[in-house]
Nucleic acid binder design. Structure first.
Lengths: 240, 240
DNA sequence: CGGCTTATAATTGGATACAATCTTTCTTGC
DNA sequence: GCAAGAAAGATTGTATCCAATTATAAGCCG
């Protein structure tokens, strides 16, 4: 399925990576010709890619002037986490209302066990990052899937269309915070299984919102006084 | 500002209208050439327009096969209202947390007075529809604006990218429901002014959610047993 | 007659060419 | 010297052309 990727789609991914990696600096004008040459294609797929990325929120479009890399400051980051927290809270509530399928419950339990295993050790090794991230994405993704709302899924996905906002972001420097965060995961599952809608919603909301606060605290040291988030600020957070 | 509209943008609006008006039927394949000829342009602006409309959620894209008009059923409509209700609740809460500017408060008060004037009469005339709709959009728009979050605004806007979901939709057939709905507006303002965050959030959430329920009830008679929403079902709701 | 393969037509994806718009620079007049 | 305007350059927007892919129809074999 979807084995047939068109060139515009790969170009979209390439340019998105250029933005996230900071090769296209915030505020910069995205010139079509140079990008096309750099990626070895014509302007056409570049144009459709830019249009897509603009609708995803990475670029802003000015008619007859082209696309500019969107610049974010810390307050916008928190606004976005606010939206994401609210929507994931809704997802958790809906999951609690409907209940989990057997597969979904099994998937979350397996992920939770993975997280437990990683966190029982005394230190968090760099090698733990990828499995932990996979665990995190599995938990959140399964809860969202269990909400059974394509519209909600789309809204959450588009709320993550911003550097530093996705559930791939893991701040692993502080082990106690990580443990507390994973404890949230356990409680969310418990709330969903016991059909405690309100508890599931508020737990998930706080869980995501605090991740935003934590990230903000981590990023502030990288930001100038204007609070504009520079690409180098998230290099270490993204890892690979 | 924005006086310079490009051809792709007008074509986007045209095609969106074709979809909403049902000239492009749900599930139908959006052929580029016929649309281009019909609108008197080449395929290029049509293609960018289709791409935009797909990202807005009106179309779905299949690589190498083109764009198809998205079909909605009643449950998807309610899912979307669920998202919109949650997000507008968040907006109301944020507005309550920050407080209203003088202009915003004045705008809402003026709109509420308009609504009061329309609803004190014994009947709701067709001529009342446009002013009432304007009032409704003013109230919701101002609350959203007062939340001071561009990200939230965008999320709410994209949650409305679906026929029948916008705040332009007014079901005026039932006057008591309309009165109750407008009473909600008063209470939301009261909650925001008194900084009752939780009250503002839950009031707005219920206010929007109930509008969805009401619309669903209204639409069910037009739908077949498969609950697919047919374009003719919303002709009378949209008015002009 | 039905299912499979193959050939043909239709449609989308991408590249190139041209037109419209914007940006920059240079000139001119005060 | 500076401001306003005009011309040149650069960049986006649109149209057209060709290639790649998919959908459709015809032919073939069981």
């Amino acid at each position: 399925m979807a084995a047939n990727r068109t060139r515009s789609q790969t170009v979209t991914d390439d340019i998105r990576e250029l933005i996230v990696q900071g090769e296209l600096q915030p505020g910069e004008h995205a010139n079509e010709q140079p990008i096309a040459e750099r990626l070895g294609v014509s302007r056409t797929p570049v144009r459709t890619a830019l249009s897509t990325l603009a609708s995803e929120g990475f670029l802003v479009y000015h008619p007859n002037r082209g696309y500019f890399v969107r610049r974010f400051d810390l307050s916008e980051l928190m606004d976005a986490y606010d939206v994401r927290a609210t929507l994931e809270g809704l997802a958790a509530r809906r999951a609690a209302e409907r209940g989990l399928s057997e597969e979904d419950e099994a998937a979350i339990r397996a992920a939770l066990a993975d997280g437990d295993r990683i966190l029982t050790k005394d230190t968090f090794e760099p090698d733990d990052l990828l499995p932990y991230r996979a665990m995190n994405m599995a938990v959140h993704g399964t809860v969202i899937k269990a909400a059974h709302s394509a519209r909600l899924e789309q809204a959450i996905r588009s709320a993550q269309n911003m550097p530093l906002l996705s559930d791939r972001i893991i701040l692993w420097q502080d082990l106690p915070i990580l443990r507390r965060s994973h404890d949230d995961h356990h409680r969310v599952l418990d709330a969903i299984l016991h059909r405690k809608e309100w508890r599931a919603e508020s737990l998930m909301r706080e869980h995501v919102y605090y991740a935003g606060l934590n990230l903000q605290r981590h990023l502030r040291q990288y930001c100038g006084h204007d609070d504009v988030i520079q690409p180098e600020a998230w290099r270490d957070v993204l890892a690979s």
